[in-house]
Design a protein around this nucleic acid. Structure first.
Lengths: 231, 231
DNA sequence: CGATAATGTTACAGACCGGTCACACCCTGT
DNA sequence: ACAGGGTGTGACCGGTCTGTAACATTATCG
């Protein structure tokens, strides 16, 4: 710790990194500034010289998380520039990694749970982040030629958000374990429905889903499904 | 407050009820026992005579929530005894009500986020509750003749859990607003897939989904959808 | 009524919290 | 060598937290 590739980090970076770690492990309200400063190899005074208050530090941490997620998006948009359906699959897989990871969900969502006060300054960061994620995912779905792009984006968002929170309360063997299979099945269903289907390269998916996907036939290949509408 | 149908509640019940309310509003760590006692019209000493510690009170509150949910299940299982698909639809609608409500998600899930310590005594209650919910929903799906009952149950679980947590971070206009439409579409897709389909009475649904559902045709009636499997 | 249990009141302990002050230190650039 | 900015140290403030002690008061019920 306290350095990044041999280059020793300055107090500010160390504090943010340490705070993110401790907030994640023990919850924002479960760790004090003194503990953070000490764990970061510095002291409370220096912490308060960089961040005027604990709330400021919280906000800085959340922004830090958000910017890391943004970088992933930028990298993905470049790597899958001409394969939006492949990018959608990658989104599911990286989401699944987040679900596993250390089992402590999304830092931003957790912060929203913990900082219940509706006027807490950190809520701006959280809401802006979630709005941004939604827009990005919707645009990706649109680029992938999905007819109901916004509906697929919201479905995937709910599934991932649910997987990450369920992982915390229902354990690693709980419903969140099926996230990949469910996510890929939903994408396939939406991609198959519209008349669009420009690039149907989802087959590039490296998914090892031993688990049969919902609507999708477990034996592979195309298949027809009859659905009755409820009204 | 402090009474239930004219019958004045005893301190113990008042404390639990008040604590549930305040925990929900401000988070478990965001409210102290003194505040709870006073808001319940009693004092800290009486609180500690009924609950040996704050953790004990937390556990009692979570059990109280869990037992209320159980009662809903029991009522539903009776009301929809011969219409499991209808019960599934009702499950979605009551879930949507929970999403709206006050926008503070599931108390049990929130507690899991806030009480990060893996050995916290309340975690037993949370995990048992979530396991129970999963089993109940899976059994209901099976009774409804769904082929992949457990997969539908987990999908719906993730969607609801996601909707409730997303509501807190992305607001009421966020992805959670589509929960009903998505949930009903998923149920329809799963119900349509299997060869079973004993009672296809989902049409009883009172859904006013102005929003077109994913796989389901917006114009109603039966419709065919071709799905390609990804592998 | 009288005994007993449940509840209310006040004060306090001990720990921890976020945040500040004054001052010493050290490193860097000139 | 010097100056100045970033940093470390320890003490401290006022507040809040969980939890307890001792005692007064009120309900309950035979």
């Amino acid at each position: 710790m306290h350095e990044d590739g041999g280059v020793p980090l300055r107090p500010r970076e160390r504090i943010i990194s340490t705070a993110r770690d401790l907030f994640r492990k023990h919850g924002i309200r479960g760790v004090g500034v003194d503990t953070i400063a000490e764990a970061a190899g510095t002291n409370k005074m220096t912490l308060y010289r960089h961040f005027g208050s604990k709330d400021d530090l919280i906000i800085a941490c959340l922004r830090d998380v958000a910017s890391e997620v943004d970088e992933i998006w930028i990298r993905f948009d470049r790597e899958y520039a001409d394969d939006p359906l492949g990018e959608l699959g990658a989104w599911v897989r990286v989401g699944a990694e987040c679900v596993l990871d250390d089992g402590r969900g999304c830092d931003l969502a957790n912060a929203a749970v913990e900082l219940a006060e509706s006027d807490h300054p950190a809520r701006h960061v959280i809401e802006e982040f979630k709005r941004d994620q939604r827009n990005r995912l919707t645009k990706l779905c649109r680029r992938a030629g999905i007819a109901k792009a916004d509906l697929l984006a919201d479905t995937l968002t709910l599934l991932l958000e649910g997987a990450r929170v369920s992982r915390q309360s229902a354990g690693i063997e709980g419903p969140s374990a099926r996230f990949i299979a469910i996510g890929e099945a939903v994408i396939a269903a939406f991609a198959g429905e519209g008349q669009a289907r420009k690039h149907s390269r989802l087959s590039r998916s490296t998914s090892r889903q031993g688990e049969g996907a919902a609507i999708v036939s477990p034996r592979g290949g195309a298949r027809r499904v009859t659905v009755e509408h409820a009204r």
